[in-house]
């Protein structure tokens, strides 16, 4: 219940005067002090965006936009996406064998909430968050649906956008590739050696057989 008059009075008018003084100080300073000038005139001026800023995912390709796409259509991001805005169809050849690349990769901008979970769960370093934010369009349906053509961006773009992350990824991929190449070479060498050994064995056997015959 209200008991009537407030209990903690100060000198009448003092508080109002102090408040006005604060406002006046702020107003005057807003003409010359940099930290008081807080607005910029968009779109002529732009506020600097942070290098970590994330908005809408993109797909990375190396060299060739079609063949170099890192995505293997594994659908992990599709499953983990919180608003379920990713749609992937796996590309198959005429025998129905998987080609390990997406035929369709759609992201709906109107549903995407830019959380970045897709880029986090991707095991193939394929999907990353973009920094582009001027994505508005007057086409409400087609314009907001991003297909492979608009989602694919080069590894150089990634490097330019997030140098630290991209170079780390590149180094890792390179190491992996080298490892793979080394493994493949080792495998090849082993196969070669095996074949040679077999050949030698067969020859020896043949020689033995000949000996017995004689």
């Amino acid at each position: 219940m209200k008991t009537g008059k407030p209990t903690r009075w100060v000198l009448p008018g003092l508080g109002l005067f102090q408040g006005l003084a604060v406002t006046g100080k702020n107003m005057v300073q807003s003409f010359y002090k940099k930290e008081r000038m807080t607005t910029v005139q968009y779109p002529e001026e732009r506020a600097p965006i942070s290098p970590n800023f994330r908005n809408f995912p993109f797909l990375v390709y190396d060299k060739d936009p079609k063949a170099g796409l890192r995505c293997t259509a594994c659908s992990i991001c599709e499953k983990e996406c919180p608003p379920q805005c990713i749609y992937i169809v796996l590309d198959r050849d005429e025998n129905g064998k998987s080609l390990k690349r997406p035929k369709v990769f759609d992201i709906d901008l109107s549903v995407c909430m830019n959380c970045g979970i897709c880029s986090e769960v991707c095991p193939f370093d394929s999907i990353y968050m973009d920094g582009e934010y001027e994505l508005s369009t007057d086409d409400r349906f087609g314009g907001l649906l991003f297909g492979l053509d608009r989602l694919s961006k080069s590894a150089e773009y990634h490097m330019k956008l997030r140098p630290e992350q991209a170079s780390e990824v590149m180094a890792r991929r390179k190491a992996d590739e080298e490892k793979k190449a080394a493994a493949a070479a080792a495998k090849l060498a082993k196969a070669k050696a095996d074949a040679e050994a077999k050949k030698a064995e067969a020859e020896a056997k043949a020689a033995e057989g000949k000996g017995e015959d004689a």
């Binding site: 407030p6 508080g15 102090q18």
Partner: peptide, 18 residues
């Protein structure tokens, strides 16, 4: 600054106390 702006303000006192 904010405290100076608000705390002693008569209107705030009259509206919020009790």
């Amino acid at each position: 600054e904010m405290e100076k702006f608000l705390v002693g303000n008569e209107i705030l006192l009259a509206r919020c106390q009790d």
